[in-house]
């Protein structure tokens, strides 16, 4: 038995932090450079008070209404987020109630930044294909734009807010998920982190102290820090290696794959990866320029966008990969089911 994604919905932050907004903040020269280095013009930002779980909830509500799927059948809910509602309790429990899901539904959070969606798909696939669960709702939702200092252009120019909902259920062998590949390199954890606010380094007056780095960016230990060069270097090596490893594991080649969907980190990076992997334009899909890097929601969002663009036909082989915080990475290949996208 295998598992398939039946359908996907997403919700972006309502507001826009535009190129022009940031041009006023950082100046024209800085923004021209930033655009050339990331390919991101505008970012969608959630208004104050809207949490990642709200974006996930909106996505799930729309998905369940559109598909007419019986929510009583859902017995697994995974909420993927690095911006939980509370330290305690787990946000997935709150979402179980808000979405009126069955009380026999397992619900838990999974926090792994940009890689989290594919990790959650792997967990859901394991639980469904082994018979532990039958239908899963995999939700993502983050408001990472709130974790950055407004004068740290190395991250402000990149991040947007978004959420998503994916419905997964059983399918016959040979369809849905054909395989996964996961990886971790914890030695690089300091290259993408929010140092303060956990139990290792609680927030304090000292951690709120702002420092200007050699490139003129301002941040404190309460804010997100990203070593952009190290992360870029990590991505341009780990993505091709993982694509190669997973395809070999499945006895497939890049020619067999109909569509490649990667974490929408940076358009410049994505275009280079596609070139390095010799993936032709018709097998690529990018959705970042007008919304920004939506962290752990970027893969389901680009997947939904590709579906809406008619790029995923029944039977198509789709390669999805995400990478980032941890450092971590994950990839999967899906044979798209025939019922995807249609009311059940």
């Amino acid at each position: 038995m295998s598992t398939a994604i039946l359908d996907v919905e997403y919700e972006l932050g309502r507001d826009t932090l535009s190129y022009e907004d940031l041009e006023r903040r950082f100046g024209a020269d800085v923004m021209k450079k930033a655009l050339s280095g990331s390919g991101i013009r505008d970012r969608r930002i959630a208004p104050e008070g809207v949490c990642g779980s709200d974006l996930a909830f909106a996505s799930a509500t729309r998905l369940l209404e559109r598909t007419g799927f019986d929510r009583g059948r859902i017995d697994l809910l995974i909420f993927c987020s690095q911006s939980a509602d509370y330290i305690l309790p787990t946000t997935a429990c709150i979402l179980q109630d808000k979405l009126s899901l069955s009380k026999s539904c397992a619900a838990f959070d999974l926090n792994l930044g940009c890689s989290q969606y594919i990790y959650a798909l792997g967990v859901a696939h394991g639980m469904i294909s082994s018979g532990i669960a039958s239908c899963a709702l995999v939700l993502t939702g983050d408001t990472m734009s709130r974790t950055v200092h407004p004068m740290d252009r190395s991250v402000v120019t990149l991040l947007g807010d978004g959420g998503s909902a994916s419905l997964l259920t059983r399918t016959r062998e040979g369809w849905g998920f054909l395989g996964f590949d996961f990886g971790t390199d914890g030695s690089g954890y300091k290259n993408l982190m929010i140092p303060a606010g956990g139990f290792r380094l609680p927030r304090s007056e000292a951690t709120a102290c702002e420092v200007r780095d050699p490139e003129g960016n301002i941040r404190s230990q309460n804010d997100m820090y990203m070593n952009g060069l190290a992360i870029f270097h990590f991505a341009i090596w780990v993505v091709p290696e993982t694509v190669d490893r997973l395809l070999r594991k499945l006895s497939l080649t890049t020619e067999d794959i109909d569509l490649f969907l990667f974490h929408q980190a940076n358009k410049f990076m994505l275009e280079y990866l596609f070139k390095k992997l010799r993936i032709p334009p018709e097998k690529r899909h990018i959705f970042i320029e007008s919304i920004g890097n939506t962290s752990g929601s970027s893969v389901p969002i680009v997947l939904a966008d590709a579906m809406q663009a008619g790029k995923i036909k029944p039977g198509a082989l789709v390669f999805m990969m995400a990478f980032g915080v941890g450092l971590s990475w994950a990839a999967t290949v899906i044979r798209w089911p025939e019922s995807a996208g249609s009311p059940l």
């Binding site: 930033a34 280095g37 490139e215 952009g228 060069l229 990076m269």
Partner: peptide
């Protein structure tokens, strides 16, 4: 600058 680092890499 930081963009030149990426392009050089």
């Amino acid at each position: 600058d930081s963009v030149a680092y990426l392009s050089t890499l």
